[in-house]
C-alpha cells in the first residue's frame, strides 16, 4: 500500500470513529416527521350570501373537517378520499412532543429522510475531496450529478413546459388527467411548436436529418429578432439616457456642488474612454491610444470591483455548505436551537 493511501485510510478511520463517538455521546443528524391523515369530501358549495339569485352552487373537494365545519353535505354518491401526509419537524419539536405525551404515534423518525441527510453529507464531502485531487469518491459524485440533473431537467421540461404549454393548449381534454383544472379552447397556433419539435427529433431518423435545421433556423431567427430590438431598447438607449448628466451641478439654493460635478465628469469621461477602447476603426496609437489606455484602466477598476464583490458571494456559498455539515449533519453547532437535547 502506498504511503499516501495509508495516511488517508487512517484519516478516514479516525473520522469514522469520531463520528460514532459523537453519535453515542450527543447524537448526530436525524430527521423527524409528523404524519397527518388528510381526508377530502366532495361537497356542493352554495353561492355566498348576497350573491345574485341565479348563481348556481359549485362542486368542490374540501378537507372533510372544513366541510363539516361549514355544515356542507357531500355530493350524493361521492366517496371520501384521503392519504397520510408527512411534514418535517425539528428534532426539538419531536422531543418536546414525545416528552409531553410519550404515546403519540404521529411523530416519528423518518428513515428515508435520515438516509437522505447522510447521502447529502457524503456527496458534499465527495465534491470537496476533489480539491485534494481527483479520486473515486468525486467520480461517483460526478457521475450521480450528471445523471440526476440531466433527468431532473427532462422531468421539469415535461411537466412544466410540454404538458401545460403545448399539450394543454393543443388539446385541453387530453391533459385533464394530470391538469384537472385546465380550461379553454384548443389553440391551433400551437401546432407550430409541435411540428417543429417533431422536425427537431427527425434527427434521430437515419434519413433527412437536415429537416432538423428548420426548427433550428426558426429558433435562431426569432432569437435574433427579439434580442436585436430588446437590447437596443433597454441596454443601448437606456444607458445613453442614464449617462446624460450635468457636468457642473448647480443647486438653485446651495450653488455650485463640487463633488456631484466631479463624479459626473469622471463618469461621463470614463464611459467615453471605454467606448474609445472598443472602437475598431483606429489602431490604439497616439491620442486615441492614450484615451483607450484610460478606457482599459476604467475597465480594470470595474473588474477589480466585480471581483471584490463576487468574492463575498462565493464565501457565503461555502459557509452554507459547512453550516450544513456542522449543524444539520454533525450537530456540532446549533445556532437556531433545533437539535440541542432538552433536559
Amino acid at each position: 500500500m502506498k504511503r499516501e493511501t495509508t495516511v488517508w485510510l487512517v484519516v478516514m478511520l479516525v473520522g469514522l470513529a469520531m463520528l460514532v463517538a459523537k453519535g453515542v455521546v450527543s447524537g448526530v443528524g436525524r430527521e423527524y416527521v409528523q404524519t397527518e391523515q388528510k381526508r377530502f369530501v366532495q361537497v356542493e358549495v352554495p353561492p355566498p350570501i348576497g350573491a345574485d339569485a341565479d348563481e348556481k352552487p359549485t362542486t368542490q373537494w374540501l378537507p372533510a373537517a372544513d366541510a363539516a365545519a361549514r355544515s356542507l353535505t357531500p355530493v350524493p354518491g361521492s366517496t371520501e378520499l384521503g392519504w397520510t401526509a408527512e411534514s418535517p419537524v425539528t428534532p426539538r419539536a419531536y422531543w418536546e412532543g414525545m416528552k409531553a405525551d410519550p404515546s403519540r404515534t404521529d411523530l416519528r423518525l423518518s428513515v428515508p429522510r435520515t438516509i437522505g441527510l447522510w447521502v447529502a453529507a457524503f456527496f458534499t464531502l465527495a465534491i470537496f475531496s476533489f480539491l485534494y485531487r481527483d479520486n473515486p469518491f468525486y467520480k461517483i459524485a460526478e457521475a450521480c450529478v450528471v445523471g440526476v440533473s440531466a433527468a431532473y431537467w427532462m422531468v421539469v421540461g415535461f411537466w412544466d413546459v410540454i404538458m401545460p404549454n403545448m399539450m394543454a393548449k393543443l388539446s385541453p381534454d387530453s391533459v385533464r388527467w394530470a391538469i384537472p383544472d385546465v380550461t379553454g379552447e384548443p389553440e391551433w397556433a400551437y401546432t407550430v411548436p409541435l411540428v417543429l419539435s417533431i422536425m427537431l427529433l427527425w434527427r434521430l431518423s437515419p434519413k433527412g436529418a437536415w429537416i432538423a435545421r428548420w426548427p433550428l433556423a426558426f429558433i435562431i431567427g426569432t432569437t435574433a429578432g427579439l434580442r436585436l430590438v430588446a437590447f437596443l431598447h433597454t441596454d443601448f438607449l437606456a444607458q445613453i439616457r442614464n449617462s446624460i448628466l450635468p457636468l457642473a451641478v448647480v443647486d438653485q439654493t446651495a450653488g455650485f456642488q463640487f463633488w456631484p460635478s466631479f463624479n459626473n465628469i469622471v463618469l461621463v469621461g470614463a464611459v467615453l474612454a471605454c467606448l474609445v477602447y472598443f472602437f475598431f476603426s483606429f489602431e490604439h496609437k497616439g491620442f486615441v491610444g492614450g484615451v483607450a489606455r484610460g478606457g482599459i484602466w476604467v475597465l480594470m477598476i470595474t473588474f477589480g470591483a466585480g471581483f471584490g464583490y463576487t468574492v463575498m458571494g462565493r464565501i457565503a456559498l461555502l459557509a452554507i455548505r459547512l453550516e450544513f455539515l456542522m449543524d444539520n449533519w454533525l450537530w456540532l453547532i446549533d445556532p437556531t436551537n433545533i437539535h440541542t437535547k432538552i433536559t
Partner: peptide, 18 residues
C-alpha cells in the same frame, strides 16, 4: 468605486454588448 468607475465601465461594456 461602485457608483462611479464601476458604473462607467459596466455601462460601456453594456453599450458595446448591445
Amino acid at each position: 468605486i461602485m457608483q462611479v468607475p464601476n458604473t462607467a465601465g459596466t455601462r460601456a461594456i453594456m453599450i458595446g454588448v448591445a
